[in-house]
Amino acid sequence: MLEIRHLVKSFGPLIAVDDVSFTVPQGEVLGFLGPNGAGKSTTMKMITGFLAPTAGTAIICGYDIATQPIPAKRHIGYLPEGAPAYPDMTPDNFLGFIAHIRGFSGEEARRRISRVVEMIRIAEVMHQPIETLSKGYKRRVGVAQALLHDPDVLILDEPTDGLDPNQKYEMRSVIAAMRPNKAIIISTHLLEEVEAVCSRAIIIAHGRILADGTPAELAQRSRHHNAVRLAIVGGADANVRAELAALPGVAGVDTAGNGLIVFSRGGDPVVGAIADLARERGWTVSGLQVERGRLDDVFREITTPHPIAAAA
């Protein structure tokens, strides 16, 4: 549904996006991750036809954004960075304007507006100027605008920024509900969001794609993948730690809260060996938990030029 082909964008000597290619099929929610200035927003601006790429292009539902911008844009719903909207307008007028530009009028426009207003829950602010709205409402008005024409491709630049935890949860439910019929890209700083809504994640830094996979696959690259949290009644002395560290497949042992965390070498499961050892030595185990891995770990390792020593 959405195909990105070798996108490059340079601003003078600065290369903001460097040969980015990927495809997003229907039913996928792609999380676009990266530090600030990594090129996420620039990539989105090129996909939506706001910026002309230095090289490469994006194909939206078969239409090339460079050569057929109007039909391509008809298939895109876009929430730009910062959710801009005309500050003097009310959401009602603003959505009316968007509906007209999108080719809906009269009853059809009213019907579509009330559908998104209900979905995004902005009914109570429909007649206040947008400039007087809270950050969360502004963001939601921006999302409502992007959903109005029920687009096949949805591109949301930080859709939950500025929302409170309840609103974030709601927004994620909305995105999840739309997922089967659309190709969706969301950019975010929140790694928990990727785990909550994305079926795939791309990590980008310095304009390049550094990782691409399901959140679970990415998490496996974390040193926490298959690490085991262990709590022993009476605490763990140096002896216990040494015995754990000596187990085959164990990379290291660390203190974590009231207990220990045992890292596995290469991400292979070690929980069985630990459980056996505990039984053998008669330790009273009050907690045993296998970690799946942490995206933030992976994110840090991938996106910092000099990974923190402990990550090795």
Partner: peptide
């Protein structure tokens, strides 16, 4: 200034 230019020019208009 308000950034709406990005919204405006990504609408399907010439």
């Amino acid at each position: 200034r308000s950034g709406t230019i990005e919204l405006f020019l990504t609408l399907p208009i010439r």
